[in-house]
Structure formats: structure tokens, C-alpha cells
Design a protein around this nucleic acid. Structure first.
Lengths: 218, 218
DNA sequence: TGATTTTTATACTGTTCCGCATAATATAAA
DNA sequence: TTTATATTATGCGGAACAGTATAAAAATCA
């Protein structure tokens, strides 16, 4: 692929009106992908049919194929969108300068918001759902899921490492071990959320875990 | 249902040869249920067809229906069998008198044996899998899953309570909070196992969690 | 032997599924 | 206008699916 097309003189970076050639799209890819993600999060891969996806996105099946590929590719793109959304919801918390306890509290609150959202009941964590289903037989999907786990572990470890440098944690604290506990807490509330354990109980689990991981401030 | 049948004088408790009336069964229900469980654990409810189940159990579909009911009932019976098996694998560990650290080590080792078993790769925890899929839309199944979570939480809490009584834990230790952490550790290794994280890494997670939950013995 | 009972074996029904082929439609370029 | 292009709309085809109806088989009982 040397030239993008024939004309566009490689000038403006696709400003506002790309002036596409044929019949205009009747859908917005980002919105449609969001709808697909909603469905997949609710019902999982196997129980979500292309007809369901077609109805939810407002796109008919050929358009779905044209835009996203087959069902598996759409699932993968939905999952990547989920990860991007989750990252976006967390990035401020990881960037702001905060005491470790507060930072963790905000992370878990944001996680619970994600896990408990959904019109037809809480939907849990899509990474966990995918690990429990498609990741077993599909190596590509498995790789993404492992990335998801690893990303979270590393983010938590960075938090604890920073807190230790700031003297918020005892010298004996091991950031990696604490990060694994923090991830485990994420996983347990994600799973329980999906079984419709009420938010109050999940918050109690988080509080108990925090009291063990970081010194509570009285 | 007043009388069981017509003849059997309510004497012997079904010794060995019940002398059933019609054509003898070509299958053993317990073995068939085990095969069904194996399949469900591997592929989940939606991705397991009755043809698959028929092939795995050696029973044709009408026999499956006669013995276990429809697919959903078979899934529920498989899940209950899973719980019974898991309980049986753990009961000794909970009964024996052991230092808390050793007891937990044995529990996690047994759990990993369950989660990592499977000819076609590790299959994780069926309770977690079910929570992630069927428990959302099916209240009966959800109830079973919540029971499963609760049973584990309570068993762990009993362990920690006993350890505290024995002076193995500081007075400040909260058995319920520790139990939630212990369950969280179960959940995280169950999920990661399903994504084929190697046993060594899972054991490292367990060790880290144990070092936080109970004093390591040097 | 013949009747009864229980299970197995075969095959059918209607539905749902995924993916695609074909045709219609709406835009830009010539 | 005409042509080229990109999308939408309709619907087909073959496979897989869950559940069941019907008939054959294998045992006990009379």
C-alpha cells in the first residue's frame, strides 16, 4: 500500500467531511460497537446471535460483516473497546496524586460502577467473563485476556510501589504481592456482582481488603 | 405418592439387585453425569449441544431426557455434582486438626487440582464459570451459585475463627475479612487458571496471599 | 408362551443459526 | 446525465439445534 487513494494530496489529516464516495453509512461505527459490547457483556459470545446484534446496532447483517467482520472479530473488537473504556475511566485515578488508600478506594468505586452497570442487571467484568468462556479454546482471545490481567496487576503494583516510596507502606510491604491481592479483590467482586450480590456487600468486601492491604486512617 | 410401588415390602434398603422390570439400562447414571459435567465444565452451557452430551455419555437423546430432564436440568444436576465432588475433595482438610497455614495450603492445593484438571486444558471453577454465564438470567441457578460462594466463605471463616481460638492469629484478626480474602484468592486463581496461567504462577499468588493472611513460619 | 414394562434406537419437526449472494439505493466523480 | 462506488435491504441455503413421537428391543411377570 503505497498511496492511500489516488487524489488526496496527503494534506489535511481528515478534517471533518471526508467526502466518501458511495452511499453514506446509516450507522456510526463507534456507537454500533458500543451496542454490540452491551449485548456481549450481557449474554456472552455463544448466547448472542447475529440477529440480536443486528437488532441492537440497527445494522443489518451484511453491514455488520462489512464493518466489523464475523461474529468472533466483532467480539474481539468489542472486548478491546471495553478495555479502552475501562482504561479511560481509570486513567485520572492513576494519574492524580493521591494517598494510596484514597487511590484504591476510587479505583474500586470505578470498577463497581462498571461491573454493576446494565439495564438488565449487573454484568460484571468482561475480562473475567471472557476468561471464563472464550479464552479457553481461542488462543488470540486468551492472549488479550492475559494482557488484561497483567495490565491490572502492573497498575496496582505501580500504585503500591509509589506508596512505598512515599513512606505510606512499611518497608516489609511487597508491592507485587499486594497487587495480586488487589487484583484478586477486583476479581471476586466482579464475579459476585454478576451473581447479583448487592453493592453494599461488595463494598464491604473492598473495605475489608483495603484494611488488610493498606493501613486504615482513623 | 403414598406407596412406593406395589410389592416391595419396605424391607431391605435396596441391597444389590433391585430386579427392575423392563429393559435394563445401558448406562450408569453417575458415570454419565460425570461425563456431562466434564463437557459443561469445558465448554459451558450454551456451547455444549445435546448431541455432544449424547456422544460423551453414550446415551441417546431420549435417554438423556428420561434420566436427567432437559438441558437446563442436566446442567443443574451437573453443577450439583460438581459441588458434591469439590466438597468431598475438601472434607478431610476441614476435618483434620491442622495449623491454619497448613490447612490453607492444602485447601489451595486441592482447589488447584480441580481447576487445572481436564484433558483439553484447565477448566477453572465451575461455580465461577456459572456465575459468569447462566447465573445472570436464571434465578434458580443464581441461587445455587450464591450458595456456592457462601459455603466457601463460611468454611474459610470457620477456619480462621478456629485458628484465632487456638492463638494462631492476633486478637485483631477478623475471621470474616480474612475469609473474604481467602475466597478472593480462590476466585482469582480459578479465573487465571481458565486463561491457562501456569500452576507455578498460581501457586505464587497463593503463597503471597497466605503470607499476608497468616503469619508465615520461617 | 404371551403380556407388560422399561429402555434404546431412529427419525422427524420446527426453529434458529451464521454467512453470503443478489439486488436496490444513495452518493461522488466524470 | 452517465458511470463508478459504497452502502443498505432482502432473503436464501445449509447446518446445527432442542425436544419429541414412534417403533424396536430386552428384560420381568403371569
Amino acid at each position: 500500500m503505497v498511496q492511500k487513494r489516488s487524489k488526496p494530496p496527503a494534506a489535511k489529516p481528515e478534517a471533518v467531511a471526508p467526502k466518501r464516495r458511495g452511499r453514506p453509512r446509516a450507522y456510526q461505527p463507534e456507537i454500533a460497537l458500543g451496542k454490540a459490547l452491551d449485548l456481549f457483556r450481557k449474554d456472552g459470545f455463544a448466547a448472542t446471535s447475529l440477529d440480536d446484534l443486528s437488532a441492537a446496532t440497527g445494522m443489518n447483517r451484511p453491514s455488520l460483516y462489512g464493518a466489523f467482520g464475523d461474529k468472533r472479530e466483532l467480539y474481539i473488537k468489542s472486548y478491546q473497546r471495553y478495555r479502552a473504556d475501562a482504561r479511560a475511566a481509570m486513567v485520572d485515578i492513576f494519574r492524580d496524586q493521591l494517598p494510596i488508600r484514597q487511590r484504591l478506594e476510587r479505583i474500586y468505586a470505578a470498577a463497581l460502577d462498571i461491573y454493576l452497570s446494565g439495564e438488565a442487571g449487573p454484568r460484571g467484568c468482561f475480562t473475567v467473563m471472557t476468561a471464563a468462556s472464550e479464552a479457553v479454546a481461542d488462543p488470540d482471545i486468551r492472549k488479550l485476556v492475559l494482557e488484561g490481567f497483567s495490565e491490572l496487576d502492573k497498575a496496582f503494583a505501580a500504585c503500591f510501589r509509589l506508596a512505598k516510596e512515599n513512606g505510606e507502606l512499611p518497608e516489609s510491604a511487597d508491592p507485587v504481592v499486594l497487587a495480586q491481592l488487589a487484583s484478586a479483590t477486583i476479581h471476586t467482586i466482579a464475579i459476585r456482582a454478576r451473581a447479583q450480590v448487592p453493592r453494599r456487600e461488595l463494598e464491604a468486601i473492598v473495605k475489608g481488603a483495603l484494611d488488610v492491604m493498606v493501613p486504615a486512617k482513623p
